[in-house]
Amino acid sequence: MANTLYTAFLSEKYKLLRNRGIFGVLIVPTLLVFAIAGYISYDIVNSGGPTAIPNPWKVLLGRYVFQFFYLLYPILVALFVFACCDVEYKNNNYKILFTIPISKTHIFFSKTIFILLTLLFSLLFAYTAFLMSGYLLSQLYPVLGFQNYDFREVIFYTFLKLFVTLSAIAMIQLALSLLFRSFIYPIGISMFMLAFSVLVAQKSFSDFIPYTGAYNALMNILSENDSFTRLDNSNILMIVLFMLISFYLFGRKGQF
């Protein structure tokens, strides 16, 4: 027996990776990127052949992919984080969790690290799929002009900022999932916040709403913005703030 963060992480990983919700958040965005690349090919074939497009990374692939991502990812993250908490709600398994010889602090941070690492891998897979799709389209349809633009930096920063945004959303959802046992509240709040953030995306106060970051990922790729803004800095603060709130709520969970 070892009361270490590493042991706690290994046990959390073993338990949570056997949950389908986890694979959803890992794989769906990657599959979506390939599906969009497939749709682009299908559209070219149906419209009689490819035509040259100014910066297809941005106007063609980026626009389609991020239009889906800004709506899909926050919901996937909310579902995934709830699934991570729900395994303990079912059967009142907090009784197992709080009677194993590992401190609550280690258990909490192992769960948090697992959530953030899963998000990171999900985005890395999607990022790789995005680059691969562009490369495949450049090979299949050189006329489109993917090979004429080096858009890697903007793509990298867009994905990086999306990771920061989704991490902040994950921590908010973690706090909500620890606060509410019912599925309705955390998922409902995430959907409402997503819709609200799109409506107020142009207002300056929206920088303090992490959900805006998903919509801004689309704007970033269209406007080729690769700099960190107030929204991104605020999201980093939100990660820390909501992690601490979640830690407090997790500690109270032990009191049946």
């Binding site: 027996m1 338990k15 056997r18 949950n19 395994v87 079912k90 059967n91 009142n92 398994n93 009784k95 197992i96 009677t99 194993i100 010889p101």
Partner: peptide, 16 residues
């Protein structure tokens, strides 16, 4: 907790 085993009310286990 390393020296104690428990079963409280209904058994706890991971359903998946």
């Amino acid at each position: 907790h390393a020296k104690v085993g428990n079963l409280i009310e209904a058994p706890c286990y991971y359903t998946k």
